[in-house]
Each structure stands twice: as C-alpha cells, then as structure tokens.
Nucleic acid binder design. Sequence first.
DNA 1: GAGTGGTCTAGACCACATT
DNA 2: ATGTGGTCTAGACCACTCC
Lengths: 247, 247
Amino acid sequence: MAARHEEIAEALRQAIDRGEYPVGGTLPTETELSARYGVSRGTVRQAVAALTAEGRIGSRQGARRVVLGNRRSQSFAELRSFAQWAAAMGRTATGRVLDQHRRPATLEDAEKLQIKPGDEVLQVLRVRGLDGEPVLLERNVYAAWMADAVERLPADCTSVVQALYEDIGMIFAYGEHVIDAVAAGAEDARLLEVRRGSPLLRIRRVTTTPAGRPIEWSDDRYVSGTVSFTVANSIGSNPLARQAGQA
Amino acid sequence: MAARHEEIAEALRQAIDRGEYPVGGTLPTETELSARYGVSRGTVRQAVAALTAEGRIGSRQGARRVVLGNRRSQSFAELRSFAQWAAAMGRTATGRVLDQHRRPATLEDAEKLQIKPGDEVLQVLRVRGLDGEPVLLERNVYAAWMADAVERLPADCTSVVQALYEDIGMIFAYGEHVIDAVAAGAEDARLLEVRRGSPLLRIRRVTTTPAGRPIEWSDDRYVSGTVSFTVANSIGSNPLARQAGQA
DNA sequence: GAGTGGTCTAGACCACATT
DNA sequence: ATGTGGTCTAGACCACTCC
C-alpha cells in the first residue's frame, strides 16, 4: 500500500500524460488539490515536490505551478540493472564474464570502498550486449565481503543485481556517478568490436548498501550511439555538477 | 535572509565537512536536532531532505540517517554559467562567437522551443576555453523573442548568462540534460583543435524561464579529459535515467 | 488587494530497525 | 520493547505574483 502522497503524485503524473494539464499550462492550486483528494495541504505539497524533483513541473512562490514536460523518468531499479532496463524496452540483454580474479586492493580501491590498501578485492570484467550487439564493457571491483556471493554467479548471468538480491538479499543504493567521454583503448576496442580511439561514454560509480557501506565500484563504458543518459534539474534542485579534468 | 531550514542544512553540511559527523557515521535524531536548533521537527526534516537529495546522507525508516560522503555539490549558478564555474576554480574562461545568424526554425527547433516551424530563431556557435585551451564547442538556438538581447552582446562576451541577467533580468532554469559521447566531426575537430574522430562529451539541454517558457536549446561538446559531470542519486531519489540510442 | 506558494509549528499515529 | 524516521493533520503567517 503506497503512501497517500505517492498516490497523488502518480495521479498527477497520469493527468499530465493524458494532457489534462498540458505542457506550458498550470496545475490547480494546493488548496484545490487538497479538497479534491481529501488530504491536508502538507500532503499535497509532498506530492508536488516529487514532480518538481523529477523536473516535470516548475514552482515559484506566488505563482501557479507550471507543467514543464511529460517525460517519464525511470525507476531506480531500471537504472541500476542493465537486464531490467533492456527488458523494459522489449530488448534482449546478454552478459558474459571475461575475467574474474581476486587481488589486493590498490590505493584507489581502498579509498572508494573504504577499506585498507592490500585488503582482498574481487575484480570482474563483463561485456554486455543488446540484441547480440556488444554495447557495454563493465569493470567492477567488489569488496571482499561480497566476493563469495559474486563468485557463485554463473558466467552468463544476465542480471547480477537481481541474482544477488535473490541469493543474499543484497540491496543496492548508488552514491555518485561520474560521467565523461574517453577513447577506446586496445582492450576496449577488441571487446566492444569498435576501432581503437572510438568515443566511449564512461560512467564511474560507487554503490553502497542502504546503510552507506560501499559494496563495489564500477567503470562502465558504452559504445557511442547506443545509450545516452538524461538528468532533470531545475532551480533549487540541481543533482548535476560539472568538474574539471578526470580522476 | 535565508530560510531557517536552509541555515540548518548548511550548518549540517559544514559539520560533515569538519568531520564532526564522519563518513559512515550517523546523524543525530530529528528530535535532537529540533532541540539543538530550536525549531520544529518539520523544519529539521526540510533541512535533511536537502542533504538527502544531494546524496550526502542516506535515510531509511527506523534507522538513524547515515553520512554517505562529504562531496561539495555545485550551486545551480556554477553549473549554468561556464564563466562563473571557471572563476570558482580560479581559472580563466574565454569565449568567442564564431557564427551568429537568424534562420527559420526546423522541426527540431520548433519542438524543443515550443514554437512553429519556420518561425525565426537565432543560431550561435561559440568556442570556449580554459586558460587559453579550447575546451567546449557550444551550439545554441535561441527563440526569436530572445534574439535581440543576444545579438547586442559583444562577440568576446565571457558570461552570456550574467550579461543577459544584467541586461534584461533574464533568469534561466534548466529542464533536462541529455548526455552521451560522440566522435568529433570535421568542424568540431578544427575548432577544438583535436583530431577528427576524437571522443567528445556531448550535453544537450533545453533552458526555460521559471515560468516554463523555452528560451534556448543547446548542444555542448567538451574535449575528452577536460571536464566530467557528476550526478548524485540514492534510492527514492533518482534524477538520472538511461536511454537507448540518441535522438 | 486578492491569490498562491513558501515556511513553520505542535501534535498524532504508524512502519520499520535495532536491541 | 524502544527508538527512529515516514506520514499526515490543521492552522498560522509571510513573500511574492498577478491583476
């Protein structure tokens, strides 16, 4: 049973999708929505805050809320699992482990996973494809306490996230994504079947448990033209930041 | 004078930066923070919600909030203005207009700017540099009602955003960013002084007024290795989405 | 000046985590 | 069992927009 404010947020999203509140138009006032849904103004505010964070509506003191767009943003589950994302689009995801071995943590590993240098980590190299075409080269480094569960996975496992959830109840909660573009190196080029120097979209991220403990960090490289990422932001809610150089 | 909840949010950010609440540790309870700052629990919740949205702390029902990191995220102003961003890092931004002309809107322009095909738009091509090195190629298309103000700007104007604000009080509020990687074309390569086919990080976005009216759309291409973008997300707050292909 | 969203309060109850 | 965050209410006042 979802919370009332989530139900209202979803009702508003659907109303926008239906064109009941057209793009460029305004939403009803908070007072009117309170009456319509039989809730207090605070609950309505929780609902519209969600749409504001998604970039679907704009909000300014004194003026009615404005509908900015009807783009559907993805669920967290779809973002974190390549297989679930592919399935949601009606496409077939493939996955293959190319290399998997334990090694001592480098300084970079230690910093990102909040462990000591030299502690054991598990490194995994995977290629993932969409409808047979390779699109993504994934380099993961797992903390030692996760290694056993990961090693038990079959090499052709399509959904690591789902498998780990079913095996050991592991829940992932991302921290931060760093996005840039790099040229394909020799290994990248061979495994992704592109020319050396081809542009790749690189996403580096650290994944943690809900309690904040780092699980793994990963370097994902997408073949240019296969995948793009979108970020919604608005004044007062800005999840996107620009940084100089690359670590 | 900032709102009380913003003051509290900033105080908590600084406490985290000082190490008073170390990464991996927990924050005080809402009740304790209410007492400490002399505000109601609702106001405390507004403050911690901001830190949660920034990805600095994690939140789960029943458990204390956890400190996830002490990264400083940027202000909205720093993201939207290349010149302000460079200045904040102590570097010098340059900017030069290479081409600027009016033309009828294409179908793509019309859709993005919510105007009719054939309506006049102003197209601008700019190169921007950091400490003399070309870093960014910016292609902007402005709606006609913005064109006069943009045309009055000097060709070597470093901060378009700031100039437009001072001239006509224009405030920008982004909508959506689409991020991918592309190979440098002939023009890209010449203007950015890189080889053809070099990887470029591409950000496409539509900018609107606070009322939701589209001002301009832009295609920014960054030389690989000069700039990266970061997105914070967490379960329940996911501003990042993955998309297949590229428009 | 009327309308609307932003801020803040004080209290209640529930769901979940921890012990 | 206790503590904690999540949800919701009802009301107040303020800052800003728009007519």
